[in-house]
Each structure stands twice: as C-alpha cells, then as structure tokens.
C-alpha cells in the first residue's frame, strides 16, 4: 500500500515535470518561419534549380558546349544542341535543355563544368502545372549578368577570363538561338506576365527576378513598363553609370561584329534583340535593388509587432 502511494506520488511528480516543461515552452520564441513572407537566406552551395551563368564581367555566355555535364548527369536530363560553325570552326551552342522534372539536384554537372557555366541557384520554388514546363530551355536557364555576379560572389567562384576571338560568334550564336526560341515559345510570354505579377510581391522577389530575366529577350518595352517608377528613381541614385556605359560599348562592338559577318541572315532582327537585351540589363540592377528595399521595408514594418 505504501509502495503504491509512493509510486502514485512519483508518477504525479513526473507527469507534473513533463507538463511544466511543455508549458514553459510557450514562453519561447517560435522557431518556425512564415514561409512565403520570410525566406530563409539559403546557403551559397545549396543545390537548387540549375542555371547557366554568363561571365559576370563581360556578359558572355560561359558555356563552351563541351557536353561534360550532359555526359556526367546520372539522370540524363541535360540535352545540348550545338553545331560547329563553318566560319570559325568553333562549337556554337544552339540550345541547352534541362529537364528539372528528372533532375535529382545532385550537382554533379556543376562539379564537372570546366567554365563554371552551369551552377545551382538558390531558387527552389519551381512548382509548375505540367511536366513539360519543367523542361527549361536556354532562355529560361541563362542568368543575367547581375545574377551571375551574385552567384559568383556568393559561391566564391573564380571569375572566368574574358573570351578572346571566339567571343562575338558565340555571343551572336547565343543571341540567335535566343531569338529563335523567343519566336517559338508562345507560352514564354505568358510566363513573363506571370512573373510580373509575382514580382509585385516582394516575397517572391528573387524567383521572379530569375524568371523575368529568362523571359528578357521577348519584349523589352512591355516588361519595362510596370516597373518604370522604381527604376527611374533608383537609377538616379545608381553609381553604376560608368559601368553601364562600358557595357553598352561592349555590346556595340558585338553588334558591329555581327554586321561584319559574312553570313547575313536576319541581321537586323538579331541586332534588335541584342539591343533590347542591353537595355534591360542596364535596368535590371536597380530593379533588383528596389525589390530588396521593399522587402526590407516590409521586414521593418513587421518588427514592432
């Protein structure tokens, strides 16, 4: 009987201790995050959506069509289309497709790439309505110069050397391919619109920026429209003016090269595309900054609560 009482008292004590421990937890700060509003700053090496970087300094596409990534991929989800340009005898990248529905994000492709062209971004919000839309083509894969800079800095990757003679041809090739796929992809325009809507939310800033960048060559003017305000405001304060000028120079040089090319099919179209690209690129940085500001302002607002 005494034993029973002892045990009962002991049990009560234990249960009480447990209840107290659980109750005291209610005075701790929550450890969870309110996801779409607050996105955790992901680690630089996080293996998210794959993307193709451009040279952060010059804006050249880094891929040299060596197909190493295609070969190493365990899931065979990379498909590269390239051809040997008859003039320069160099490989020209025509299209680059990654099926993110197949990809297991092992990052092997990024490890073998000799030019650090293919990289894992921090974007993980890639849900989509169909399997087909998970197949990213070169347009959706290629990062803008600023994004490339961001990832190169974040991952502490060595800056690639600017390309020498082969540069113009490759760039033109890439642009040409981009123009082609732009003409083909009707849904890409829809995507861009969706990206714009998402961009209105500061929460989705990063992902939207990536998507908007992918849809860049489509239609420079409509894209620029809704953000005109923030752009112009930020531009005034942007100390990057000289860099911009420099970039423009480079592209002008490029376009000259193109005109000098003997193979003169659809020259004008290409030129347009490239110009549109430069315009948008220049506008990209301040736009991103503005978004960041909005995000911070939001965070400030929330704090006093």
């Amino acid at each position: 009987m005494a034993n029973l009482l002892d045990r009962a008292v002991e049990s009560f004590k234990r249960v009480g201790e447990g209840l107290k421990t659980v109750f005291m937890h209610s005075f701790r700060e929550p450890t969870t995050q309110e996801y779409p509003e607050k996105i955790q700053d992901l680690a630089p090496h996080f293996r998210g959506r794959l993307a193709l970087a451009v040279n952060p300094d010059t804006g050249d596409h880094l891929c040299i069509s060596c197909r190493q990534c295609e070969r190493v991929c365990p899931d065979k989800c990379i498909e590269i289309t390239a051809h040997k340009s008859p003039e320069t005898n160099k490989l020209e990248l025509i299209d680059f497709k990654i099926d993110h529905g197949l990809c297991m994000f092992c990052g092997l492709c990024t490890e073998v790439c000799p030019t650090t062209c293919i990289i894992n971004t921090n974007d993980f919000e890639m849900a989509d309505y169909s399997r087909e839309s998970l197949i990213y083509d070169i347009k959706r894969l290629t990062l803008t110069q600023d994004e490339s800079t961001y990832y190169f800095d974040k991952k502490e990757l060595p800056r690639p050397k600017p390309k020498a003679a082969a540069k113009p041809a490759a760039a033109a090739g890439a642009a040409g391919a981009a123009a082609k796929s732009a003409a083909a992809g009707g849904d890409a325009a829809a995507k861009a619109a969706a990206a714009k809507a998402a961009a209105a939310k500061a929460a989705a800033a990063k992902a939207a920026a990536a998507k908007a960048a992918a849809a860049k060559t489509d239609d420079g003017e409509t894209k620029a429209e809704p953000k005109a305000e923030s752009k112009s405001e930020e531009k005034a304060a942007e100390p990057k003016a000289d860099a911009e000028a420099a970039k423009k120079d480079v592209v002008e040089a490029k376009t000259e090269d193109i005109t000098a090319e003997p193979k003169a099919d659809a020259e004008a179209a290409k030129k347009d595309v490239v110009e549109a690209k430069t315009e948008d690129k220049a506008a990209e940085a301040p736009e991103k900054d503005a978004k960041k500001d909005v995000k911070e302002a939001k965070a400030d607002e929330k704090d006093p609560e």
């Binding site: 659980v22 109750f23 937890h25 209610s26 701790r28 700060e29 929550p30 450890t31 969870t32 309110e34």
Partner: peptide
C-alpha cells in the same frame, strides 16, 4: 494555437 505555443510554432494564422 495553444499547441502551437507549446511546440514553439505559430499555429494557424
């Protein structure tokens, strides 16, 4: 919400 408090979460909000 109370369970969320005990489990250092936020609960439905």
């Amino acid at each position: 919400r109370s369970l969320a408090l005990f489990t250092v979460r936020m609960g439905p909000n």
